[in-house]
Computed example of a mutant assay.
Amino acid sequence: LQKHGYSLVMFNRTRAKAESLLGPCGTFSDSPAKLAEQVDVLFTMLAHPDAVEQAALGANGFFNHLRSNALWVDCSSVNPSFSKKMAAEATRREVHFVDAPVTGSAPPAAEAKLIFWVGADTADLERIRPLLLCMGNKIVHAGGHGMGTSMKMVVNLLLGTGMAAFAEAMALGEGLGISRKMLFDSLLGTPAVAPFLASKREKIESGNYDAEFPLRWMQKDMQLATVSAYESGVATPLTNITKEVYRLAMRDGHDTEDFSAIYDYLTNSHDVTTIDQKSPAPAKAQLH
């Protein structure tokens, strides 16, 4: 946005993380409330629903300080029912609301190649389209409020389960004696493997899981997917199991690493006990 000449007012709960982003057109605000008094369009991108609600409705929250007819664009990955709740709160305050979560990690963001999944009235989308195209190269209008969030949830469910399934398949292959190189060379590019997994090869081979998308946020998104599935009466057994595997990986110290570190957890997990086939069979308990 700054590269396109827009003046920005910024706030981050940890100021040091945002100061490096301030260019000649940017200023830092002391609170969401003070920020809201200075802008016509407000973007949020926060970690989870509680953080969004605190920024909007908490002490020094922005909601009651936005101008009438202002527009709030929430790019956070939250659940659809939460987006609809925020849309209702916005309507009560004569504020326009758009849910517009994104697909794309830090490198695509730096190159303005994010995908925006938008839930909004058409007029509101057209009002912010030029702003979104400063940050992304694709906009999908999925429908009304909550539908952008819904699409993002479906995408992240596929990413999370796909990464875990691939890691488990790799673990099995290596356990059967196939080299990791052979598995990568043979599997990547085939219909059995999602294209995004090719970008994780370097991390897995080097063991360097510097986060593009932290594992703890993938686990959070899958947890929200199961909540949404419950609310809509949809059974998601695979997602429920996979989110718990990510939770176990978090407990094993992988929470701030890239979510591809699920491979490291599954191939090095201390929770799995193997029995030497040559060792005596375990004694059978007898009940009397």
Rank of each mutant, 00 (worst) to 15 (best):
H4R: 12
G5H: 13
G5T: 11
S7H: 12
F11V: 14
T14Q: 10
C25W: 12
C25Q: 15
G26V: 13
S29Q: 15
P32N: 08
A33E: 10
A47S: 14
H48T: 07
P49S: 11
V52C: 10
Q54S: 14
A56W: 13
G58N: 07
F63Q: 00
H65A: 14
L71F: 07
D74W: 05
V78M: 06
F82P: 03
S83D: 11
S83F: 05
K85I: 01
A87V: 09
E89K: 02
T91F: 00
V95A: 05
V95S: 12
V102S: 07
V102G: 08
T103V: 08
G104M: 13
S105L: 13
K113H: 09
L114I: 06
I115D: 12
W117Y: 15
V118Q: 04
G119S: 14
D121G: 08
T122D: 13
L125Q: 04
E126N: 13
P130S: 05
L133F: 13
K138T: 14
K138V: 04
H141K: 03
H141W: 10
H145T: 06
H145E: 11
M147D: 03
M147A: 10
K152H: 01
V155K: 00
V155C: 09
N156C: 01
G160S: 04
M163G: 02
M163L: 10
A169Y: 12
A169Q: 11
L183T: 02
L183Y: 03
F184R: 00
D185H: 06
L188C: 04
L188Q: 03
A192H: 07
S199M: 05
K200E: 03
R201M: 09
E202A: 15
K203M: 14
E205M: 13
Y209V: 02
A211W: 11
R216F: 11
D221H: 01
M222D: 01
M222T: 04
T236H: 08
P237L: 11
L238S: 10
N240T: 14
T242W: 02
R247Y: 10
R247F: 15
R251W: 09
F259I: 05
F259K: 02
A261D: 02
I262K: 03
D264G: 02
T267C: 10
N268T: 14
S279D: 02
P280G: 00
A281E: 08
